[in-house]
């Protein structure tokens, strides 16, 4: 059994508790214009040239090798619930392939975290929930039409999945909304209203907000894709949103990614 990934990042400090190994799974059905990992969108392995060398994004790795790679840093997981984070792309889309690995990691008491957009059929999420210790849920554009147009996200599915998580046994303190902020899309007044509503509904989830950045430009170049430069978000706007969120959830914080 193999899964398709682009990278395994050891010593990740921003992807969940403790010291973690983050596995970036390849393939995502969303089209977020600010995507910072564009090489993780396509499900296909993509070749490109860099400094006249042939390189490629993506490779298939056996579960056995992947587990070996994850366990390499086991010594560093011990303190403060470190472990593995599955990110992407959308990790839920390869959950069937991943499941045996999750089972094995669980049996070894490795903390398992997912970073997901929730843009995946609910039955896939149900598989994942059995193994998840921590989850980061993207919250981006929430208007039904906008979500479809901009992100290619089915917002009904999103809310359905959110409810699934909420009603699961997952400890609420281990569930975190991550909200990317940019002037062009997510910071729009109507959207912020929707975001606040959602946060209010799930008030016991954690909330982290951050500015989107333009770091994916060179990756897009490698992939021969257009990259739209986003205007810089000023700290004032960020703090304003934070304050509004904090009225509903005092633990909300700004992170930088």
């Amino acid at each position: 059994m193999t899964v398709r990934i682009t990278n395994i990042q050891h010593f990740s400090l921003d992807d969940g508790p403790g010291i973690r190994t983050t596995v970036f799974l390849k393939g995502c059905n969303l089209t977020c214009p600010w995507c910072c990992n564009p090489e993780n969108i396509s499900f296909e392995i993509e070749n490109y040239t860099h400094n006249s060398q042939n390189e490629s994004f993506g490779y298939d790795i056996s579960l056995k090798d992947l587990e070996k790679e994850i366990l390499k840093d086991e010594a560093f997981y011990v303190e403060n619930n470190g472990g593995v984070t599955f990110s992407g792309g959308e990790p839920l889309l390869q959950i069937r392939e991943l499941e045996p690995l999750l089972k094995s990691l669980k049996s070894k008491n490795i903390n398992i975290c997912f970073e997901t957009s929730l843009s995946a059929p609910s039955n896939l999420l149900e598989i994942a929930i059995q193994y998840i210790d921590e989850i980061f849920i993207d919250m981006k554009v929430l208007d039904k039409k906008e979500a479809k147009n901009v992100l290619n996200l089915d917002i009904d599915l999103y809310y359905e999945n959110l409810e699934l998580i909420n009603s699961s046994n997952l400890d609420k303190k281990n569930i975190t909304f991550r909200i990317p902020l940019n002037n062009e899309y997510t910071l729009k007044e109507e959207n912020i209203k929707d975001i606040l509503n959602c946060i209010e509904k799930y008030a016991d989830f954690n909330v982290e907000i951050f500015k989107t950045h333009n770091l994916a430009e060179s990756k897009c170049k490698s992939l021969n894709q257009e990259f739209t430069i986003f205007s810089p978000v000023d700290d004032e706007a960020l703090n304003e949103v934070l304050e509004k969120i904090q009225e509903l959830n005092s633990n909300a914080k700004i992170i930088s990614l």
Binding site: F11, G18, I19, A75, F76, V78, E79, N80, G82
Partner: peptide, 9 residues
């Protein structure tokens, strides 16, 4: 915090 954990590990 995490860097301290890293040192101990």
């Amino acid at each position: 915090d995490k860097f301290t954990d890293f040192i101990y590990s």
